[in-house]
Design a protein around this nucleic acid. Structure first.
Lengths: 114, 114
DNA sequence: TTCGATACATACTTTTTGGTTAGTATTTGA
DNA sequence: TCAAATACTAACCAAAAAGTATGTATCGAA
């Protein structure tokens, strides 16, 4: 597997690309919430434990730039913004499902031992 | 999904745990090489482009500590160490396969556009 | 006229991750 | 006696990711 270029940046392998697009602590949890419905900013904020405004905003912006979520701003006061998955976002859900399942299985095994 | 504790550390969700165990730039590429055979340190080193001694060593140690790889040291000179997957390591391969496939599909789509 | 509601932005600090360079231990064979 | 081979270790630095704390714009309602 040789190096390749994606959107102007060099990657060493496909895993690295995926990690950059949906890796980190918050991106998959965000995508997961949007799995089957649109959500407002504040709803995401309330639904994802421990996330800060800064993290929620930056991660949403990156997911938008990379084509995973759609951002719909309504010109009302107080402001209202709705987030939803794009086609690409929907396509990545099975992968997240498998990662979550694997994580849960790790936790279960650990619980059995203790 | 509430917080939980795994080996003494608090996690916010299962994704975060998986990311910590096999995330980052190098761990999955390492596990992938060991997929169907034991490899010596130097073989891994030569086979994984751009990886440094420091990264290879630290990531192997963490994978060993977390139970994904087995480390077999032979008392010979010059030194010889063989790495192989444990049961847990083998179990995680399907997940890595899917992540790689997803990454490859991203690359393909991007190539079609350009 | 001020307040409340919402979705942010900004500045700053800390933590984590990764990269670079150089060095070490051991024994066999030239 | 010295070089070669292998699997590391250590010290240091840079970059990226994440956390914390505070501020802001807008408009309608009270």
């Amino acid at each position: 597997m040789p190096d390749f270029i994606f959107k102007g940046k060099v990657y060493y392998n496909p895993v690295q690309l995926v990690m950059e697009q949906i890796g980190g602590v918050w991106k998959m949890p965000i995508l997961w919430r949007l799995k089957d419905h649109t959500m407002r900013y504040g709803e995401l904020r309330n639904d994802i434990p421990h996330i800060s405004d800064k993290m929620l905003t930056t991660q949403l912006r990156e997911l938008e730039k990379d084509g995973y979520v759609h951002r719909q701003v309504y010109a009302v006061v107080p402001p209202k913004t709705e987030y939803s998955l794009t086609e690409r976002g929907r396509e990545v859900i099975p992968l997240i499902t498998q990662i979550r399942e694997y994580g849960s299985s790790l936790i279960e095994k650990e619980a059995q031992k203790a």
